[in-house]
């Protein structure tokens, strides 16, 4: 075997060539294993350094970090994640509720409704939504969506104000949780749609034919053979979208008015999130202030980590299930 290598390389004596070969092999193996280990190291380092730099600020904190609503690390050394975490969860859930049904519809459109020739280019059009930078969505939300939502918000408040989410007095509309939630929905829609589209396309053709041969309409066929098969994929896609929405920063930093209270009134200008607060508060932060922001980033890191890991577990279970069915 070794002789082949030499003749091809025109290499020298067998022993030297063999040692050179093992050098190369060893180096290559070292580099690729090393790169993988570096990657693991980075993940560990993120946790370690966020904790390390958060501790001094948390020590100096005079309020309970988990229950305090205000964020005054610079002047009063009192800050808490309560209102911010609430805002992060609420805005992401609004985004999820809006985006998931539309994304599933888009995925079905691409996989089962659009004319064959148009499906791929139309799918690409949806992918383009993901290519727009988040700061552009923020600008669009601020300059276009926020003014646009004012009248509908007031209408909802007047006519459906009994519903807690639409309740509120004083200023209605403007930089609201709803506006941020809609922008987040637009941003996570392409992810959810892309993953759902893939699982819908993987639904076994033979089951689709079986449903049609029983006299099912297109919708009945989808309900029998496509949706049950795709459900775990859609669930994990939605969870990945949720994780993305929670971590999204700049768009909501431009839209949210940086208030620090807990309210379900999504039509009033009371909204904030962990990520938005980091972006908006960083410029004026003192040392303690920076530490406090890092502490809040650590909370965000842990929350998104949990959501993403849960999503991955659902996907992996689906893979096993698909294999068992094959």
């Amino acid at each position: 075997m070794a002789t082949n290598v030499q003749t091809r390389d025109g290499g020298p004596a067998p022993s030297r060539s063999a040692s050179r070969r093992s050098h190369g092999e060893g180096l290559f193996r070292f580099l690729s294993t090393g790169a993988g280990v570096v990657l693991l190291g980075i993940m560990a380092a993120i946790a370690v350094f966020l904790i390390a730099e958060a501790i001094p600020a948390l020590r100096a904190n005079e309020a309970n970090f988990f229950t305090e609503l205000t964020w005054e690390p610079n002047s009063q050394q009192a800050f808490g994640i309560g209102a911010l975490a609430f805002g992060t969860v609420l805005s992401s859930l609004i985004a999820l509720v809006i985006a998931t049904p539309i994304a599933v519809g888009v995925a079905l459109f691409i996989s089962h409704y659009a004319p064959r020739r148009l499906a791929a280019p139309l799918g690409y059009l949806i992918d383009l939504l993901a290519a727009v930078p988040s700061v552009v969505y923020g600008l669009w939300g601020l300059a276009f969506l926020v003014p646009l939502l004012r009248t509908p918000s007031q209408w909802l408040n007047e006519n459906l104000g009994w519903f807690p989410l639409f309740a509120g007095e004083g200023i209605i509309g403007g930089k609201t949780m709803l506006a941020g939630g809609i922008v987040l929905a637009i941003m996570i829609l392409p992810i959810i749609a892309a993953i759902s589209r893939e699982v819908f396309l993987q639904a076994p053709k033979m089951n689709e034919e079986a449903a049609l041969a029983l006299g099912a309409t297109r919708w009945e066929m989808i309900r029998m053979a496509v949706l049950p098969f795709g459900r775990p994929g859609v669930i994990s896609a939605a969870m990945l979208g949720l994780g993305r929405a929670m971590g999204e920063t700049i768009a909501v930093a431009l839209i949210f008015p940086a208030t620090f209270d807990i309210t379900f009134q999504i039509l009033t200008p009371h909204a904030n999130s962990i990520a938005a607060n980091i972006a908006n508060g960083f410029g004026e932060a003192t040392d303690i202030g920076r530490g406090a922001l890092i502490a809040s980033g650590l909370v965000l890191f842990v929350i998104t980590l949990l959501v993403n890991m849960a999503a991955r577990m659902v996907i992996n279970r689906r893979k096993e299930y698909a294999r068992a069915g094959a």
């Binding site: 993120i46 994780g243 929670m246 971590g247 890191f301 980590l305």
Partner: peptide, 15 residues
């Protein structure tokens, strides 16, 4: 690697 895909960009900056 999958988990890292979900790291919010603001967290990468803070790190």
């Amino acid at each position: 690697v999958d988990v890292m895909t979900g790291v919010p960009s603001v967290v990468a900056g803070l790190f």
